[in-house]
Design a protein around this nucleic acid. Sequence first.
DNA 1: CGAGGTCTTGAAGACGATCAACAAACGTGG
DNA 2: CCACGTTTGTTGATCGTCTTCAAGACCTCG
Lengths: 241, 241
Amino acid sequence: MNHPLIRKLELLAPISPGEKDLILSAAGLPRRIEPDRDIVREGSSPHESILVLEGFCGRYASFRDGRRQFTALHIAGDFVDLHSFLLKPMDHGVVALSPCTIVGVPHEALLEITEKHPHLTRVLWRSTLVDGAIHRQWLVSMGRRSALGHAAHLFCELALRLQAVGLSDGRSFRFPVTQTELADVLGLSLVHVNRVIQELRAKGVLNWRGGEVVLEDFEAMAALAEFNPTYLHLPKQPVEA
Amino acid sequence: MNHPLIRKLELLAPISPGEKDLILSAAGLPRRIEPDRDIVREGSSPHESILVLEGFCGRYASFRDGRRQFTALHIAGDFVDLHSFLLKPMDHGVVALSPCTIVGVPHEALLEITEKHPHLTRVLWRSTLVDGAIHRQWLVSMGRRSALGHAAHLFCELALRLQAVGLSDGRSFRFPVTQTELADVLGLSLVHVNRVIQELRAKGVLNWRGGEVVLEDFEAMAALAEFNPTYLHLPKQPVEA
DNA sequence: CGAGGTCTTGAAGACGATCAACAAACGTGG
DNA sequence: CCACGTTTGTTGATCGTCTTCAAGACCTCG
């Protein structure tokens, strides 16, 4: 089964063919979203949860004065707002960072799953728990890592998450995001992000041009970041690309 | 029913008497934990999830060089590691910040609940989602608020969370934590935390002595923090103290 | 009364923010 | 294919917040 959601859910736990059918048949039709468009609006109370089939998007909070902070980055296979099934209204927005393909899963269908399919329920619950674990690691990065370490940590995380769904070989991947957006992810200024990126380049660990990232030396990058992948709770073996 | 867990769960959603019995009967005997003692160790794979009946504790990650970052603060009624039911091993530790009374709920019992009690399952799931929402708000504080705003935000959050379980009138509460610990919560240095606290005192919004916090002017504090309580997903009316 | 922890203060310095330009890349229409 | 405008990336200079280092004051508890 090659559907990104299934691929992703199977990373969390084995699921049966019946369960696969169940969730796929609940999903609506794929929709195309342009970059910079909101996928879920802050303050809304959705009736469906959105799954990303393709592209990058992010959850963010923004201030009246225009400051913005991303609190999560999502890739193919991620539910961006599974929590909105049980937690309304949305306390943050979700925006497409690249062209995205998404599908919605109606909350009714999720309710049905929780009523009748305890195993699948646990798998979905678990996926929200992994989101939480990533939030915590970002908190650690924000609080106690240098800007350089923080950026390095994020690149390591992305490499492994993308590898897990077959979108990276663990070394290089598409990353169609501007430095301005990255600044809002890292909680830094645009100018400083630019300097940090250059420093990673100068150290020979990062090559990032035209939306393509290459980690020239993952080990060195991980060392800079004091990166420990445990929190991602990925299985030992990534799927084939 | 006056059990802190029940009080807390009822904030999330109405639960039936049968469900209350169910979860209470699953819980083990209360245990007393001294300050500074680990409640759950990083790297462990617990067979039960811990619920706080009394006291303050925190989740933290630490570095080899001694730096530490708290990623959550927990109060009476909170499950500190409900996620360990589905996500092992622990990617962080949990430590008592004050003397704590805790009970364990065996993962077997939680499994049973997810198999047979979908509604209660959703309530528990929801409680982990609120944790996630708080993580996100902390990320926003770390990334885009000044040290002063960040501290003010935390005090506002604590006032409302404690009020929700009857441990504050919304203005004052016990907060038996050192400035060193607060520094590790806020991701700041001890010295700077001290200065920020003094600034809040000078502004006449905070009085914090001997483990007792008084928010002299909640509105002013909330304004400093640009605090919006939506993310806590609390019901309109707090319970009586 | 002494000892250890906690809080407070001062001074110096680093890291990252801000302000202001400029350069390069990209997309579009002519 | 080039001209142009817009977006993105880069650089320099200055400034401010927060860190670090160091020491002293206060408090609690034996």
